[in-house]
């Protein structure tokens, strides 16, 4: 800026109050990361079920909702934990403010988790019928599973709706970021696509870890989805990193990464570990079906995604706003 370039206009803050540091920290990073897995497995499972016979992926019907359920609950737990008044979360349902993406998202995510829970119960009841009939000694669980087993067809009826709902549940965080108008780096349409790619990346990576018994073709598709998702996500990060929208605030925010330091290391570590390496590893396994290598790529992608999201979440919060 011109103010910094000549002596006469150099301006320095000499007395001010202490500014807030990072407000949304690692809990929100974990929240977004877990949600990417929770919704991503639904997208990827829907594609695989469309493309392949169920026999090619014998555990998918129950493993997908179980993974989704676990990570959605991690997401919900950290959403709650990050609140300074966690018990007042109830106010979102009692006094909803519908212009807020936080409200809309909370309602949608709650409904989505409910539907995933139903899928999980039916999936487990169908898979472990014998256990729940004879082995299970907890009466309420036994009767619930018996009821779920009798309504097995409900799974296929509600699954399309779950896939449809997964889209806004994935994207609403981008709308929260768009509403966070103090943080210009997040004010980009690319955020919506970044969320979608993150979900596909995390979803395929999570399913790769449970795909040991799947057909080679199904696993090949998983590797393809992971490769495509990391490629496009990486391309978008690079676009944002180098072009920075030519807005002074976005450029000043990215300076925290461009200028070196801890965030620079974390960002490039995340890019290399979670995007570049998994791309080459996953594409290389598509021909020879190396399950171990593919799993390694999946773990790297999940770690790298967390790091990339962490940097992108924190750097805009370091900019002084006034």
């Amino acid at each position: 800026m011109v103010e910094h370039t000549i002596n006469a206009t150099q301006a320095v803050v000499t007395l001010d109050v202490a500014l807030p540091g990072i407000i949304w920290g690692w809990m929100i990073t974990l929240n977004m990361w877990a949600k990417s897995i929770g919704t991503g497995v639904v997208f990827v499972a829907a594609y695989l079920l469309y493309r392949h016979k169920k026999d090619a992926m014998p555990n998918l019907r129950w493993a997908m909702p179980v993974i989704s359920f676990i990570f959605l609950n991690i997401f919900l737990l950290f959403t709650l934990t990050d609140l300074h008044q966690p018990y007042r979360m109830l106010n979102i349902f009692l006094h909803p403010h519908w212009t807020s993406a936080i409200t809309v998202g909370a309602w949608m995510a709650s409904l989505f988790t409910l539907l995933i829970t139903i899928l999980m119960v039916i999936g487990l009841a169908d898979q472990f019928t014998e256990y729940f009939k004879r082995g299970c000694r907890v009466a309420p669980v036994k009767s619930l599973m018996s009821f779920a087993g009798k309504n097995s067809g409900t799974y296929e009826k509600i699954f399309p709706f779950v896939v449809f709902l997964a889209v806004p549940v994935t994207a609403y965080t981008a709308i929260i970021m768009a509403e966070s108008s103090a943080r210009e780096l997040w004010q980009a349409p690319t955020e919506v696509m970044q969320m979608m790619w993150a979900a596909l990346m995390a979803g395929s990576a999570a399913l790769i870890l449970v795909s040991g018994s799947w057909s080679q073709e199904a696993r090949k598709d998983l590797a393809l989805i992971l490769s495509v998702a990391v490629f496009f996500s990486f391309a978008m990060y690079m676009g944002e990193y180098f072009f920075s929208f030519k807005s002074s605030e976005a450029e000043a925010t990215l300076a925290y990464v461009h200028a070196g330091g801890a965030y620079n290391v974390e960002f490039w570590f995340g890019m290399t570990l979670g995007f570049i390496a998994p791309f080459f590893l996953a594409t290389s396994t598509m021909k020879n079906d190396n399950v171990t290598l593919l799993r390694f790529a999946a773990i790297l992608a999940l770690v790298g995604l967390y790091l990339a999201k962490d940097v992108w979440l924190k750097i805009p919060q370091m900019l002084p706003l006034s």
């Binding site: 807030p20 407000i23 609140l83 008044q85 007042r88 509403e179 966070s180």
Partner: peptide, 20 residues
């Protein structure tokens, strides 16, 4: 008395005028 402490407002205010 209604605020849940999500800090969304702190992220949204372009003037940094809100505190916890």
């Amino acid at each position: 008395h209604r605020c849940i402490g999500c800090a969304g407002c702190m992220m949204a205010c372009p003037y940094g005028a809100i505190y916890m």
